[in-house]
Amino acid sequence: MHKARKLEVMKRIGLKIAIMAIVASAAPVWAGDDENPGVRNCTWCHGTSAQGYMVAPRLAGQRAQYIESQLRSFHEHTRDNPFSKQYMWGAVAALGPREARDLAIYFASLVPKAANDGDRDLAARGRTIYLDGIPEANIVSCYACHGPNAEGVRDIPRLGGLAYFYLKGRLEQWGQGYHSGVESPMPLVARHLGPDEIEALASYLSFVK
């Protein structure tokens, strides 16, 4: 089931890369558009209202400091999971710090919509893990850092309403040893999460408004 889903995603990404390659060659056309070309470069993958699309996470309503720190980590190649490497390293190569900050502030100002694409039956369990952790298994409460409504703060990201696929993937990647830009306790957190716990958390969070 999951394998099939992943395959489908990969297929669609492949198609998208082909389209991007064509569009990129005609990039100057966008420059004359009403919309800021920097924003347009992001929304092409992250969705027209930046609500996320497939593997590209929602940016709308994300913490500005977090977006900025991630753009920096893509630039410095410290956020190194396969999708980051494949898409974001190139995408930010020519992005200066000032433009990165402007983009971060812009996307943070957009109103986020919840993805609502997790498994509803797992949401209650996910909520319990989010709030309480599982102390017996040394799984920490997510709430302590990400906030009571998964809204994030400063450079700690908002998780509420992100897509199930993205949340699940990120939690898996932390456990697999991929890095992020900032000094983060997340590899330690994820190391203790099993597949069931990851699915429950990703499901719960996808419904949080």
């Binding site: 040394n138 920490v140 302590a144 850092c145 990400h146 000094e183 306790p185 330690l188 957190v189």
Partner: peptide, 28 residues
């Protein structure tokens, strides 16, 4: 087995209280 003893529990504490116990600024 799930607790993994003192080492695992210390790691658990330090996830929130800082990797060398120096404290950490989360939501709280």
């Amino acid at each position: 087995a799930r607790q993994g003893g003192l080492v695992a529990k210390l790691e658990y504490c330090k996830t929130c209280h800082g990797l060398s116990g120096q404290g950490y600024l989360g939501y709280f």
